[in-house]
Simulated scan of single mutants.
Amino acid sequence: MYWQKRLEQKNPNASLEKKIQEIFDEHDGNYGYRRIQLALKAQGIKVNQKKVRRIMG
């Protein structure tokens, strides 16, 4: 029944997901994970490209 507890957990990446979605929408869906990771870095948010890929997937 461990999976039931996972459903109740809140998303720790919710704010990052929101920022990624904003950048993606701002550029009409033409940005991939590499450009989004660089845009986040320019905003001062240090995040691994693997995490960006995982969230975008």
Rank of each mutant, 00 (worst) to 15 (best):
residue 12 P to K: 14
residue 26 E to N: 10
residue 3 W to L: 15
residue 46 K to L: 09
residue 1 M to Y: 11
residue 20 I to H: 00
residue 18 K to W: 09
residue 51 K to L: 11
residue 41 K to C: 00
residue 37 Q to C: 03
residue 18 K to T: 11
residue 32 G to W: 03
residue 42 A to C: 08
residue 12 P to A: 10
residue 9 Q to G: 08
residue 14 A to H: 10
residue 52 V to R: 04
residue 26 E to V: 09
residue 36 I to V: 07
residue 46 K to I: 10
residue 15 S to R: 13
residue 25 D to L: 04
residue 27 H to M: 03
residue 22 E to R: 07
residue 19 K to C: 04
residue 16 L to F: 06
residue 40 L to D: 02
residue 46 K to S: 13
residue 36 I to R: 02
residue 27 H to K: 06
residue 33 Y to P: 02
residue 31 Y to N: 06
residue 15 S to A: 14
residue 54 R to T: 10
residue 22 E to T: 09
residue 51 K to C: 05
residue 31 Y to T: 00
residue 17 E to I: 08
residue 51 K to W: 04
residue 50 K to I: 07
residue 17 E to C: 10
residue 6 R to Y: 14
residue 40 L to W: 01
residue 57 G to C: 13
residue 19 K to F: 03
residue 23 I to E: 04
residue 31 Y to V: 02
residue 7 L to S: 15
residue 20 I to V: 06
residue 3 W to G: 14
residue 21 Q to I: 08
residue 53 R to W: 10
residue 28 D to W: 10
residue 53 R to V: 07
residue 16 L to K: 04
residue 42 A to L: 13
residue 55 I to H: 10
residue 29 G to L: 07
residue 44 G to D: 03
residue 10 K to C: 10
residue 18 K to R: 12
residue 40 L to Y: 03
residue 13 N to V: 10
residue 18 K to P: 02
residue 53 R to Y: 12
residue 55 I to G: 09
residue 11 N to H: 11
residue 55 I to R: 08
residue 25 D to C: 01
residue 52 V to W: 03
residue 55 I to W: 07
residue 46 K to D: 11
residue 56 M to C: 07
residue 50 K to V: 06
residue 43 Q to F: 05
residue 23 I to G: 02
